[in-house]
Design a protein around this nucleic acid. Structure first.
Lengths: 343, 343
DNA sequence: TTTGAAACTTAGATCGATCTAAAATTTTTA
DNA sequence: TAAAAATTTTAGATCGATCTAAGTTTCAAA
């Protein structure tokens, strides 16, 4: 009956109090570092805690207090290193406030996301950082408001009524297009993939706007497969166009890796025969050869910022919604050159 | 006083019970799908739950029951895609059992790891999947036993008394060495980096053993910097050796990416001038050109297995310790060739 | 010595579920 | 039709903390 033993052996605040010859209430005050307890008593209680190996039971405390010290994070895809870095930022910033992060993977499926939100509510999370699954209805926002649950949208948004931390994708696309245009490129493709959501749309719109305002040919959007392995093999899509692009902007680092491999397989030299610009600069960008010129979005910092906003919102649920859109940085490396006029 | 309102508006089981004209106990039975309640009553209660928008409060339930439905996962470094994939496996398998994962990053620091374990105990986790930080003392294992906390070690181990899910690193090294030897390589280097732990040691020992049993020159271990960016620049370390290696086995995908970039910068062609074998095959391995031959360790499956072991251990804490060591698979791609005899 | 304020301490209710043991109801059996 | 058995339902204690409101001590001032 080892379970029984274990339960019995659990040290509660009452045990501590008895051991220190004070009441449960006083022990609780010590726990919460209240200035009300005398220093002699405080020390006696602290010693008792140490001697008995007392472990605070947040779950029990939460029953009285409205804070669980747990926040949730829902991302569409954990295996994507971009989201891993985002998560790292979230965990770091939330952890620093003494809270804890429940992690979940929506797989970009709305029903799964719904289930996860419910599960998190059952666990009484203080708030959620949500990167909404593609096709999430705006109605979810009202639902969330109904629940009275603090939520920060990250990277993608479904409603202006909720906090949002993201990236100025349009500006990022403009940086990429401007840079390529300055090198003399006129036929530029945007290689996209994956499900459609706000961040996708903003990139596409940004691309079109940037092309238009440079008076370049209307933007060429080319869709690639979802999986990294399949992208390289689909590289030919770039050349199946009415007019062959001299430069390609990649939707994210997955497309960049895939195309970088695929172009290599076609016997083309990146930076000479064709120019490539990445987006969502993750650590690996440094390791591709030639080094990939790319638009960096700083996922770790975004995660940290989202955490900060969530903490603020939890502290004051009536704050007006805030929208933090961070700038991108164009890292010029070696994957772009002047267009080959022979084409 | 919106907080007050919110609290008041929280629907409890008692509200549901009243609304359905039954007692709290009956409502609780319905919640737990007990066969004891009559079907007419069950439906009435279920309707009441739906009508009132009842949300189960796991925290409250946990006070009576010994299960929190929370498990913890501690990894040394979230931004490493290898651990992200591991985590993805853990989250998937744990999530499928209806439990939830608290995520934490030890940064490979023992004190931080200790703090995180404490925090998780305070949250009453049912168990923890731990990839121990480098330099973790074996004493932690006794500590954990004292606490009566179910723990599964993953990828690294500090004690045979705890469950462990990992990789047969020695066999993996043998596969790599055997393959290179079969191509005719005799001077093989092992490029390592990062903190020293069981998985590190097993790889190094495995390398030495494999070299010895093939009667090749004693293994050459070369340490590289921790950060990806610095590895490429340190590539020359390979050539500072008394005898220049014709093939290099990389400690993990970070070293592989770094060296693959660095060798390229040195003007060497991988697979012709020098052979490279990766380890810890992550998704990106497909995207390096030439495609990287590597020893795959399947992080997602390892995470899933660790989750399964933890669930079993929680169900029966008195189970003898289990050790699951999974096989590696050598993926032969394009980064290896016959040694250049001119050297 | 009494009084009042300041400094500490505490009893007991409370949060929202589960569990036990017993009560109420229905069905079956004699 | 009464007793026994089976099926449902429930009152009230309980988990481990926090909070309120009230009770003690201590000590300086009157």
């Amino acid at each position: 009956m080892s379970l029984e033993e274990r339960r019995k052996s659990r040290v509660t605040l009452l045990d501590v109090a008895r051991h220190a010859n004070v009441s449960r209430a006083t022990a609780s005050l010590v726990l919460r570092k209240s200035p009300l307890v005398g220093s002699e008593t405080r020390i006696r209680v602290e010693n008792a805690m140490r001697d008995l190996g007392y472990v605070y039971n947040i779950g029990a405390a939460r029953l009285r207090v409205e804070r669980s010290q747990i926040i949730g994070a829902i991302v569409p895809n954990l295996t994507n290193p971009f989201f891993a870095e985002l998560l790292s930022g979230i965990e770091g910033a939330i952890g620093a406030t003494g809270k804890v992060v429940i992690l979940a993977n929506s797989g970009d499926e709305v029903e799964r996301q719904e289930m996860l939100l419910r599960r998190m509510r059952e666990h009484g999370v203080d708030g959620v950082i949500l990167c909404p699954a593609a096709c999430t209805e705006q109605a979810l926002s009202d639902q969330i408001a109904d629940w009275g649950m603090p939520v920060v949208q990250v990277l993608r948004h479904i409603s202006r009524d909720l906090d949002y931390v993201g990236v100025d994708y349009a500006a990022g696309m403009r940086q990429a297009v401007d840079y390529l245009a300055s090198l003399g490129h006129e036929t530029i493709a945007f290689a996209v993939h994956g499900p459609i959501h706000s961040a996708y749309q903003e990139r596409v719109d940004g691309f079109h706007d940037a092309m238009r305002s440079r008076a370049l040919e209307p933007g060429m959007i080319i869709r690639f497969p979802a999986q990294l392995g399949d992208i390289a093999e689909a590289t030919h899509l770039l050349f199946d166009q009415p007019k062959r692009p001299t430069a390609v902007i990649c939707f994210n680092h997955i497309v960049a890796l895939g195309l970088s491999a695929g172009l290599h397989d076609c016997g083309l030299t990146i930076g000479r025969d064709i120019s490539l610009v990445g987006f969502d600069d993750v650590a690996d960008a440094e390791a591709i050869r030639p080094k990939l010129t790319s638009v960096a979005t700083g996922p770790v910092a975004i995660g940290e910022m989202a955490a900060r906003l969530l903490v603020d919102r939890i502290a004051d649920p009536d704050l007006p919604a805030r929208h933090v859109v961070s700038d991108t940085i164009l890292h010029i490396r070696q994957s772009c050159g002047r267009p080959d006029r022979k084409n």
